[in-house]
Design a protein around this nucleic acid. Structure first.
Lengths: 157, 157
DNA sequence: TTCTTTGCAAATTCTTTGCACCGAA
DNA sequence: TTCGGTGCAAAGAATTTGCAAAGAA
């Protein structure tokens, strides 16, 4: 029982446990997905991959299929934003929620223990077996706020 | 300044304010949407409307266009669940959040003042101008839980 | 009259599927 | 050898758009 597995190791374990196969595409995609820590959607991931004809090319359907497996394996978490699926690291990454700026579309992470507490309490009063939650706070981030008020000042001149 | 407007009145005000027109389709759709208080998606709404050829028929594109206007006018709130847009009453309806049962797909509403407080506090510490939030707690509802444990008991026999 | 709105058909966007061939175990 | 996996092309689901005709102001 390893103390701390890399995402790659954890994924291989998942594959073995299910009798699935370790393929070049799966290996390559775990590497890519965990090479940087950012939210991404399928298209953004594909843009960062080699093109058709190049080495390590992975087809679009395989990307979708593999993303699903990553979620299954507990490596990624998926949520929806503006009608598309967005993925973020789950494995080995602390629980957190997001501020979403409606001006610049940026997702800002934050952590709050209170939320999990509150969530569990709510679950208890509703006799609901809580598995997880998803909180997105919409609004305007600091950068966009100051840019806005700056423009307002200019307009007044 | 009316003390309490119906959704219909409020929508007409919105239309006039924007120089838009009061059409039969818009009138009919407000009525339909506010005739019952439930979450719904575009397809569910369309299923409840008259078919092509019948009186009061509204085409699919018009339904989509009008739903967007309802959101704009503050009558409805939209969120995404399993890749599709879900709408719920906003106007005249208290702020609330949802428990989502992953077994039966049911959405259960609940209210909690704590959440708004916590949300605003988080906004303050991040210098983020909070506009709204969306919290969905995923898990298993009471009905599905008891059904499950019942089955487990039966299986053991 | 003027300019918005509607319905139709078609296009788009994102994602999934069928299938023949490839390849891991 | 045996299945599962992959890429391709095509299908699907949800939503949007172009456009000509209809309709509100």
């Amino acid at each position: 029982m390893p103390v701390s597995q890399t995402p790659i190791e954890r994924f291989e374990e998942y594959l073995v446990a299910r009798g699935l196969r370790k393929t070049d595409q799966r290996r390559f995609l775990v590497e890519q997905v965990f090479s940087r820590h950012e939210h991404f959607d399928a298209d953004q991931l594909i843009d960062q991959l080699p093109r058709r004809g190049d080495a390590n090319y992975v087809s679009r359907p395989t990307v979708y299929r593999t993303l699903k497996e990553f979620v299954d394996a507990g490596l990624l978490r998926r949520f929806e934003l503006n009608g598309r699926s967005v993925y973020e690291h789950d494995y080995g990454y602390p629980e957190h929620d997001h501020l979403y700026c409606v001006k610049c579309n940026r997702l800002i992470e934050f952590q709050s223990e209170e939320i999990a507490k509150l969530r569990d309490e709510i679950g208890r009063t509703h006799r609901f077996r809580v598995r997880s939650h998803r909180l997105i706070i919409q609004g305007v981030c600091q950068d966009c706020s100051s840019r806005q008020s700056q423009r307002r000042r200019q307009d007044r001149v």
